[in-house]
Write a protein that binds this DNA or RNA. Sequence first.
DNA 1: GTGGTCTAGACCACG
DNA 2: GTGGTCTAGACCACA
Lengths: 131, 131, 131, 131
Amino acid sequence: MVLIDKLSPKPVYEQLIDGIEKNILLGIYPPGSLLPSVREFSHILGINPNTVQKSISELAARGLVISSPGNGCFVSENAVALLKERARKRLPALEGTVRELLLSGIEAEELEQLVRKTIKNFNEDSNGGTV
Amino acid sequence: MVLIDKLSPKPVYEQLIDGIEKNILLGIYPPGSLLPSVREFSHILGINPNTVQKSISELAARGLVISSPGNGCFVSENAVALLKERARKRLPALEGTVRELLLSGIEAEELEQLVRKTIKNFNEDSNGGTV
Amino acid sequence: MVLIDKLSPKPVYEQLIDGIEKNILLGIYPPGSLLPSVREFSHILGINPNTVQKSISELAARGLVISSPGNGCFVSENAVALLKERARKRLPALEGTVRELLLSGIEAEELEQLVRKTIKNFNEDSNGGTV
Amino acid sequence: MVLIDKLSPKPVYEQLIDGIEKNILLGIYPPGSLLPSVREFSHILGINPNTVQKSISELAARGLVISSPGNGCFVSENAVALLKERARKRLPALEGTVRELLLSGIEAEELEQLVRKTIKNFNEDSNGGTV
DNA sequence: GTGGTCTAGACCACG
DNA sequence: GTGGTCTAGACCACA
């Protein structure tokens, strides 16, 4: 369900956050649903419960998840909206990346093609997954 | 010449590396030229000499600069080529970012426009700066 | 009769306690009256009977209700007096809150107005509800 | 500098957050200043470094503090503004508390007096501290 | 069973 | 020296 690469420079707890967020967007963990428990994540992913707890707490602080001691942890109703809102704030960073690549001599045409191709693949994947 | 933000989450030594690389690409530090000395960087940027040394060592390890003990540090002849080659390796990451944004509901059209606009601005800046 | 928000950070058993206490003060559960049974609360509110039992036990420990095994649970005769006495003990906390808000730059005048307005609204609500 | 009550029901890490926030508002830790280090807090307060770290991370997530690995942790320039903004959001809660106290039979006049007295004491304390 | 806090101790990267 | 991550294991409150 979520993949953890212990050798990645990205901290484990961040990888887990990213994985859960992705699953929320994909509809695997839809708003209102109950997340796997801390101990479950811990056991399946082979990481310490405290590390999982840290991820969950962070998600709760971001309003993506609501934890209810004794009951478990629910995806909040506006989680998807929050994630979409945040994505919009990342657009300037994308712009910066493109500029850096251009400065490094990547051809403009190549960049445009890459983006078009990615969009095309994404749409095909979505259809394949949905239909 | 290089801007350092001590409060940035990005480590100072990485900021310096990025800055120097950018200056190499911009032709401010052309291949064969002598870089400012460690002490100079340290003094001007107000950062620790050890930190500057770490950046220089990393640049040397990447083959972008060549240290000549006693004489200083020169930009290597193939520095620009190396940087362009490395940029190419970053393209898959760009693809991943685009996919994430698409998954987060950003419209494909909006992404294409952003890229086109960035390219356009970049070309105008380049002309303005060069001519 | 009592509203339970399962997603609230406040534990369910505390929410139930607060709700029952409020109903005692409002005269909905007057002293001497019989409270709904544990099963009734559990069923209507959709919460675990153990949770209801915990709330009732706590209320009994506070002297607000008296359990009569086999007959149910009665609001004690001095429940209202006890609640008023306890409210008095909360005044220092209110003072602390006010000090914190002042320290945070909230204007004294604004605080006084807020309190006056709340008192006014409360009196109007009471009249409307009673008459 | 910050008082920790290990017997308090409030978690230690929250007490530390509150204490640091209070010191920021009091000007003891002014914006731009360097906070005591994690290990220092840990040693002085007699609590585990991880607990301190948790508090600091939370403050960083709130934008009140900017941590710079290797350098320490700085109070952000807009920390005071953020705290004041947050205080404003607590006003509705104060209103709710006042209503509860009124419902519990506390006299309106007594509440108004308490607030006035608290404001008066606060102003005197402020003058005493400043002059 | 659930989430949450705390400690102890190790390890890492940064300056 | 600094902040930050991770593990192990204990303990608590809630349902």
